[in-house]
Design a protein around this nucleic acid. Sequence first.
DNA 1: AATCGCGAACTTGTATACAATTGGCTTGAG
DNA 2: CTCAAGCCAATTGTATACAAGTTCGCGATT
Lengths: 216, 216
Amino acid sequence: MKAAQHAYNTLRASIIDGSYPPGTRVTEQEVAASAGVSRTPVREALQRLEAEGLLSFVPHQGAVVTSWSPRDAADIFELRAMLEGYVARLASARASDEDIAELRRLALQQSLEAEERSVGYLERIADLNSQFHQRLQLTAASARLQATLTTLSSVPLVLQTFRDYSNEDLTRSAHHHRELVEAIESRDGDWAAAVMCAHIMAARRAFNAKHQQPSA
Amino acid sequence: MKAAQHAYNTLRASIIDGSYPPGTRVTEQEVAASAGVSRTPVREALQRLEAEGLLSFVPHQGAVVTSWSPRDAADIFELRAMLEGYVARLASARASDEDIAELRRLALQQSLEAEERSVGYLERIADLNSQFHQRLQLTAASARLQATLTTLSSVPLVLQTFRDYSNEDLTRSAHHHRELVEAIESRDGDWAAAVMCAHIMAARRAFNAKHQQPSA
DNA sequence: AATCGCGAACTTGTATACAATTGGCTTGAG
DNA sequence: CTCAAGCCAATTGTATACAAGTTCGCGATT
């Protein structure tokens, strides 16, 4: 694999799984050593991660892992509700038969995993979920626009959602996806957008329940 | 100035002013020579421009200036209407007195320029417009989120808007901005969002009038 | 003991050299 | 005349070497 891609994957995984907590300083050499490549491709990886919002560059100090304020979190959920709702609406109008088939496959698989809960199911569900939303974006928008939307969905905030999910939340999430497929198949953009909105709002609630001070 | 920044500015200006039309292939050496720096900072500049959507990387071939399909254009205006409307709503709730004062200053200045139309007024108006929207985003969102929103506003599609504007359009645009200031000052989020939406829709109409085949 | 100043090490930023892969062009054969 | 195959050139991808700036620590001085 390309060295830059390798460095990107390595560092990104470390950030998302929590090995590099928010606020951590990340030096180029450190990443270079850890990925076994030179600093040149590492700089490329750092820049990509900065563009995606996972890192911030502090002048003359290097990169630090982005920390998200409660306000950031609230804004991001709000934004996602709007944008992904929009995506669901577009997808309802533009989905091909293959798109729908693939979305259904992903949704059903996720339902299965949510029921069985065999070892490693959380990771697999997170992956299926990402694939579902990504496929939806690909269905809705031209590739160009999809790249723009991706940046909003890749923040750890979103990716770690399932850590905060109860079993009930997991089942509900899978149900939402299957309902989305149905809405899209019947070309009902309003329905699809509403389901997606509910989907995100449910995620927000789970997030808030876990991360807000219990006093509030 | 930093070499990477210089390369970025140079290339970006060339893309926006049309020296590099969509579809043009951009090689690293070419940019390096034109900016008088080595390839290393150029790669950094190319990456940033790719993240902003002005360039696309074709595997093993380099970067090409992004070309936008009519569908892309339509989607982008739709998205901007949603997002900037959201931004206007947030700004209504969060703007400080200084924010409002600065927004008013920018809006009034733009009105003046739109009336006088002295030499170079189009460039100055474009700049004032960018500043206004950027300030609004800064007012509405945390700096972190603002960075995400920026990527959507920097596409040439948006920056070149004023080329398609008639004098009437220019006046209306300035009016919109002043109305926005008023809405925000009265903390009326609904009003602000609606005005912003109209603002974007007007831009879309001007764009479509110029770029769609006249037969339609 | 505390503070100011100097220096050294670390980190980023840039340049250059080298490797690898690809696309185009030329040349030859059918 | 056309098509295919191989070679060459161009371009990206990576590594390393070097320069400049900054921060932290140590020591000296008050």
